[in-house]
């Protein structure tokens, strides 16, 4: 075979891999860099056609969007909704995940299956019933609306992710603690939770990000005052023109917390995604 893709030596192979990964990385990061640059440009520079050439940076877009057009309010809304939904989902989902990692009962398996179905279901399926319920309860346009709606996908997510991590904790540890006279609750709170601190943080941040990025439920369950960032952003595409600079500014601010958090828990992310697959069900 001539013209091998992979060189024969180990260092050569490593070099090819590094180069390939570098190319992919640049390709994936370029749009984001574009976004950041656009947010710092004035209107003329945005359409100059030369994306990466030098320009005079300005913070006008941030000022216009967040102070004049009230996106600061949307930022606050997003924060309130995401943190509340995350906190409730963790409070409910983590103990449930533990229970479901230890049970072998048929009902437990069935519950797990239901949780999984809820995760794979298109979000729009629940949008209609949720909207009707919220409208009848008068909760459209309040924070409670989107928070409850986000729980429908956050709780299954937390349960499945934490169950995977709890499965990795040997059952013998449970038994040892119970043997020494600890109640199950005491074992759970003083031993198990501190032990799974890393996974807990990863799950919490993931839940936060999921809620933060959610568009559809926010779209139907909020009004002008309670709209979250993803819901409010399209309002910058107006009939008299799209304010690309301001959209970019909002985009940068929206992605910033996600980026920071993702870097923080990067180590746990992959393990969390696949943890359930390798441990026995």
């Amino acid at each position: 075979m001539t013209g091998r893709l992979m060189p024969r030596t180990a260092t050569g192979r490593r070099r090819v891999l590094t180069l390939g990964l570098a190319i992919v990385l640049v390709l994936m990061l370029l749009p984001y860099l574009w976004l950041v640059l656009t947010s710092l440009k004035n209107r003329t520079d945005i359409f100059s056609g030369d994306v990466f050439s030098a320009f005079t940076p300005t913070l006008d877009n941030f000022r216009l969007a967040f102070i004049q057009k009230g996106f600061a309010r949307n930022l606050l809304n997003s924060t309130i909704v995401a943190t509340t939904a995350m906190a409730i989902a963790m409070a409910v989902g983590v103990p449930a995940g533990y229970a479901l990692s230890r049970t072998t009962a048929r009902s437990g398996t069935f519950l797990l299956f239901v949780m999984l179905a809820a995760r794979l279901m298109p979000v729009v399926v629940l949008a209609v019933p949720l909207f009707v319920i919220m409208a009848n309860l008068g909760l459209v346009g309040t924070y409670a609306g989107p928070v409850v709606a986000h729980l429908t996908f956050l709780v299954p997510f937390v349960v499945w992710m934490m169950r995977g991590f709890f499965l990795a904790v040997p059952k013998e540890l449970d038994e040892a603690a119970l043997m020494d006279g600890a109640t199950r609750a005491r074992y759970f709170f003083t031993l198990l939770l501190p032990m799974t601190r890393g996974p807990l943080a990863a799950t919490a941040i993931f839940a936060l990000i999921n809620s933060w990025n959610e568009l559809l439920y926010g779209l139907i369950l909020t009004n002008k005052l309670t709209a979250t960032l993803p819901v409010a952003t399209p309002s910058l595409m107006t009939p008299i023109g799209t304010f690309w600079g301001q959209i970019a500014a909002v985009g940068v601010v929206t992605t910033l917390p996600v980026l920071v958090f993702a870097l923080l828990v990067q180590r746990h992310i992959v393990r969390g995604m696949t943890g359930g697959a390798l441990s026995d069900g």
Binding site: R119, M121, P122, V124, V125
Partner: peptide
């Protein structure tokens, strides 16, 4: 439509499970 979509999700979930 939602009910049909839910059925499809159930089927997918069953395979996955």
């Amino acid at each position: 439509m939602g009910i049909v979509e839910f059925m499809a999700a159930l089927a997918a979930a069953y395979v996955f499970f």
